[in-house]
Nucleic acid binder design. Structure first.
Lengths: 147, 147
DNA sequence: CAGCTGTTTCAGTAAAGACTGAAATTACTA
DNA sequence: TAGTAATTTCAGTCTTTACTGAAACAGCTG
């Protein structure tokens, strides 16, 4: 695997993250690189150099990714460097959180029906909620794949 | 239904659109208002006044929403005003497009496996793809609700 | 065709957000 | 405890993007 090819792939992952989830570019690059790097644990400095970002930027991005539990800090005794690795179920978490976000709308829809009563206006709200609930129900019924 | 209550509800829909889909606030407000307004057809000027945005902003937002087919232009003979109404299946379209976006990742994953070969590094890619494909498969198998 | 009423364009403003460099800080080592 | 190698903080820059006001434009009516 050439470095160029790897970085090109990382960039595609990053673009996907930016386009589909609205993540900042560097956040996406970190995720992409942590998916294919060897070894899977990488220091912030090494990542910064690889993807061409500042260390300052890495600090905030790693903190963010750690906070939402997509990556994990790894410390080694006798080494002041902190390493990071992607969580095994990182992408499953992302998918699940997106699905969970849909339930917000169900609440909004219910309150909307209270506002409009039971006329033709309620149909638009019902149709919207049906689309959201449909996907949510599917995801609840069928279990996600094991790791 | 008081106007205040309606506008508060519209704002919640807008916030949802901003948070979950990264739409601009005004775009979300337009969608929200078009869900509960009476009649369902509204002129750009009327919408602008209701949600407190400029007419210029409405022009671009309506063009955008029309382009992605979430709202529809309605013209009435003998009336120079153009009206807009939300598509009956607007939210279903949104959900489906989000799902379709996931397939992009399947392609990326496949190319990633070509890069990494069949070692431990490929596991991270496989796990990611499994989460995406899982949801996609579910959605393909079970039909969405009819309108 | 003139007049009115609505829409569109466009240049500019304002605000948000991502990113960086340099200084300060922390954490390990000897 | 001093030294060193990493991380973090922070102020500031730069880019992007949403939004607006005013002027130009388009469409219906008399």
């Amino acid at each position: 695997m050439s470095d160029d090819a790897a970085l090109a792939w990382v960039e595609r992952v990053a673009t996907f993250c930016v386009d589909e989830w609205g993540l900042p570019p560097i956040t996406g690059r970190v995720l992409g690189w942590l998916m294919i790097c060897d070894p899977p644990e990488q220091s912030a400095g090494a990542i910064a150099e690889t993807i061409g970002a500042s260390r300052a930027s890495l600090t905030s991005n790693m903190r963010y990714l750690t906070a939402i539990e997509l990556i994990r800090r790894v410390r080694k005794p006798g080494d002041r460097t902190t390493y990071f690795r992607i969580e095994d179920d990182a992408w499953r978490k992302v998918v699940h959180r997106k699905l969970a976000g849909l339930s917000t709308f169900t609440t909004i829809a219910r309150d909307g029906l209270d506002l409009t009563g039971d006329g033709p206006r309620s149909e638009r709200i019902r149709a919207a909620d049906a689309s959201m609930s449909w996907l949510q129900k599917l995801a609840t019924q069928d279990p996600p794949p094991a790791l």
